[in-house]
């Protein structure tokens, strides 16, 4: 009888590999994106198994909840011509195949070099039930690694600003109304109440 923890690991790992395979092989980009969501979920499950609950939840929150939503948003609106995408498939196959084989060989060489393996990287010691991964991570980030963390945050902020500045353009033909002006409108500017007698005396 297989133990529970390895069983869960193999279930999530199989799902992850399957989903990742589907992402690159499926023809429909929307389905590929949905399988990518499944892949993220399986990865989050694996992290939970390592009692890294903060990373797992943040993976779901950021990648599944925000990044993939925007990704789907774009992919669904694109009208992708599948026939044209697949046109050069045979042409590029030899070069792509060689690169892929080289990559697999390199990965195999590195992984079989004896530096990796269950013996080299033993299972981390089990943590106590009240151990909080979130608290431990927060302590480290804001004390020991405060400067690298702030630097990374700053670089990301610059990237955000750059992305917005590069893509923003004011379209001349949009009929944009200033909301402040709309709110400032008073009744007297729009409606004129005229007093008049209800009926004429004849």
């Amino acid at each position: 009888m297989i133990e529970f923890k390895p069983f869960v690991f193999y279930v999530f790992a199989t799902l992850l590999v399957f989903a990742a395979g589907m992402v690159v092989t499926l023809r429909n980009p929307v389905k590929s994106a949905l399988f990518l969501v499944l892949a993220f979920f399986s990865a989050a499950g694996l992290w939970l198994l390592l009692s890294a609950e903060f990373l797992a939840i943040v993976l779901v929150l950021v990648y599944v909840g925000a990044v993939m939503v925007l990704f789907l948003f774009v992919v669904m609106m694109l009208d992708i011509n599948l026939a044209r995408l697949r046109a050069g498939f045979g042409e590029y196959l030899p070069i792509g195949g060689i690169v892929a084989i080289l990559l697999v060989l390199e990965m195999g060489l590195i992984l079989s070099s004896g530096r990796f393996g269950p013996g080299r990287m033993p299972e981390p010691a089990a943590v106590a039930g009240d151990h909080s991964n979130t608290r431990a991570l927060g302590r480290l980030i804001y004390t020991v690694y405060a400067y690298p963390f702030e630097l990374a945050a700053l670089i990301l902020l610059v990237a955000i600003v750059a992305a917005i500045v590069l893509t923003m353009r004011r379209r001349k033909d949009t009929k944009y109304l200033d909301p402040a002006k709309q709110i400032d409108v008073r009744r007297e500017d729009r409606v004129r109440v005229i007093k008049m007698p209800a009926e004429k005396k004849s």
Partner: peptide
Amino acid sequence: NIDASLLFILALTSMAVYGVIIAGW
């Protein structure tokens, strides 16, 4: 009673949008 329950809730509420997006598509 998990320690990161607020994050858990945030992650789950952010997933609710998938139902709507997938339904529309």
